[in-house]
Design a protein around this nucleic acid. Structure first.
Lengths: 248, 248
DNA sequence: CTCCTCGACTGTTCTAGAACAGTAACTCAG
DNA sequence: CTGAGTTACTGTTCTAGAACAGTCGAGGAG
């Protein structure tokens, strides 16, 4: 039996719908009476769920008007949203990017699932890179860039231009990202590309990056050698920063 | 007719009583049933008032125990500084803690190095636990608690009481932490404790937690099975949250 | 003396419904 | 054409009660 209270399950479901773009920034949610009916709960329970979202800044409620997904904020410095490359450059580590391939391909399920309304045969730009740290291959990275951003950046020389810089130059407003990191063993194909023996400990990271309309921009899949990199989290009561650092 | 909602009037009244010392830090408020009767409102309305206080950090509510004025040590909500246990409890996953040993020992170099002025032979409390997730051992954790906190908490039953709760109850003001996470292969000794074959992918986390004077409180070393747990990072311009989630 | 069970407390979740307050659009009268 | 009133929506507050889940202490049994 799930021990998740119903109000929390509803909050999680609505959060997922907002984050996936089902409800976009600035858009009104269905009326609370309608939502409570569709989830089969009372107004009290539904409103408790909405309290959670409101507390997390995802929605705003206006008496007499409606419930809205929090409008997109103004453009902001990406201080807390930092890529691996930025973290390492900031630490003075030379990072070289080797581009293995750039091609428009049929989008994988992992991408179309996040796009929601993507039609069959949907295409995206697939970018495969190896990042070299201190002269050694350290990270294998596959990025899928969704349309319309794919068309906008596909002519870019990614050995010289970071992907997110190209996206910003093309007008993409990166707003938020979710990232999942788990440990794994280095597989043989990627081991060959990184010139390491298979079976060693690695991080596997999957990151989905969204624009201010809640639409997916990039899906990144990276394999990161554990012997060269670690995650360093520094937390205070008012702040949490998370970044990659090279192992000594 | 006053336009202040009753729940807000009750929240204001209780806030005034807390701030005036009528209810002191650490003291239990009357039971919620009793408060609702004395204010002449339903439990729902009373609890809505308490939500306001809880959101402002003035009270903490403990299911089955009572409602307490927030102890003086918790001067700020530690929303962003969250332990593995908190993350998993919040997701409704049953987490059981097995305590393998609690003993005062000579502090290891990794601890005395962070203590700065520690004399030779410095002692600390060494706590060894295994966390069980969904009935399976998932995390092996060694915590070194520095003095004076070691003496303050050494009699605690850590199967029932989270370490950081015991520290807070003993007056430790946790202020910030640094954590390093890297991937590794499960070693044989820890594999035996977690009842897994050695060599599988794990996270290894080392976290140093400091008080508001900048003195080290706890040094944690954890080995986390990668097949059961992953790191989920969610980033926005205004916020970064980092938490552990169990693998599906 | 120790351990387990049960009861009495606590907080938490949820149902069901009614009424109040805010907003906006539409209609009608002047 | 304009303004006021009305209606139909919205969110918000509150009542009343039941049941679930957590905690702790007391008492009894082994």
């Amino acid at each position: 039996m799930s021990s998740t209270p119903r109000y929390r399950a509803i909050a999680d479901d609505l959060t997922g719908k907002i984050r996936s773009g089902h409800y976009r920034a600035g858009e009104a949610l269905p009326a609370q009476r309608e939502l409570s009916a569709s989830y089969g709960v009372t107004m009290m329970t539904l409103r408790q769920a909405l309290q959670v979202l409101s507390g997390e800044g995802l929605i705003v409620q206006r008496a007499g008007r409606g419930t809205y997904v929090t409008p997109a904020s103004a453009e902001y410095p990406l201080d807390t949203l930092r890529s691996l490359g930025d973290d390492l450059r900031r630490q003075g580590h030379p990072l070289r990017t080797e581009v293995l391939s750039v091609a428009v391909r049929r989008a994988p399920r992992s991408l179309t699932r996040l796009l929601g309304d993507a039609p069959a045969g949907h295409r995206a730009l697939r970018l495969v890179r190896v990042r070299h740290l201190l002269g050694r291959p350290a990270v294998h990275q596959i990025s899928w860039i969704a349309e319309p951003h794919a068309s906008a950046v596909k002519g870019t020389d990614f050995t010289e231009t970071p992907l997110y810089t190209a996206l910003a130059d093309a007008g993409a407003r990166v707003h938020r990202a979710t990232e999942r990191v788990r440990p794994a063993l280095l597989t043989a194909p990627v081991a060959a590309l990184l010139r390491r023996p298979a079976g060693g400990p690695v991080f596997v990271s999957e990151r989905a990056t969204y624009d201010d309309q809640g639409a997916l921009v990039v899906l990144d899949h990276a394999t990161i050698l554990g012997e060269l990199l670690e995650i360093r989290a520094e937390r205070k009561a008012t702040d949490l920063s998370l970044h990659w650092v090279s192992q000594p």
